[in-house]
Amino acid sequence: MEDSRIVELYWERSERAISETSDKYGKYCYAIAYHILADPGDADESVNDTYLGAWNAMPPHRPSLLSTFLGKITRRISINRWNSRKADKRGKGEIPLALDELAEAVSAPGSPEEEVTAQELARCIDRFLTSLPKEEQDMFVCRYWFLTPVAEIAEKFSASPSKVKSALLRTRNKLKVHLKKEGFM
């Protein structure tokens, strides 16, 4: 079913909207949730919460890109679930690894964190992504938006894991320079 029709179903308050969303985007949302949570049960719950989130958001929202709209909800719910987990379970998934990697790019004493809104930072990252070659752009977003494991990225990019790691390292170094240039660090 076309995305626009699925959105219409949400606006019509038809429960079919959920089943159509599940058919078309269930696996996609599950992949995002599972990368973050590394637990099938938790991932299933996040996907179900995504449908509920979409149901509550439409109306008033009428997203033009349903996949990214749903992906953002899943990502946010899954990260929140990861945060609220007990410490022993929180160690699982890709978040701890991604955080370790990104720590290098933002390590600077006395950063004005409180004064920077997430929105401003997102625009800064947009400008950074624009400056990258397409391959690097995609790899960075696969890793830090979708939290995709390096091995899976390597497979999708037909590259070795070591090549992906070194490409990501180079991109993070560039990001560090960019953040400094734009005054975020």
Partner: peptide, 28 residues
């Protein structure tokens, strides 16, 4: 700024970057 803040802020990047990565991952 810490890494968590950066990871959270990634959510707000433009859709075109997300779509392009979706394609690469075979999610479309």
């Amino acid at each position: 700024m810490n890494a968590k803040y950066l990871l959270d802020a990634m959510e707000g990047i433009q859709d075109r970057y997300i779509i392009s990565a979706q394609k690469r991952l075979g999610y479309i």
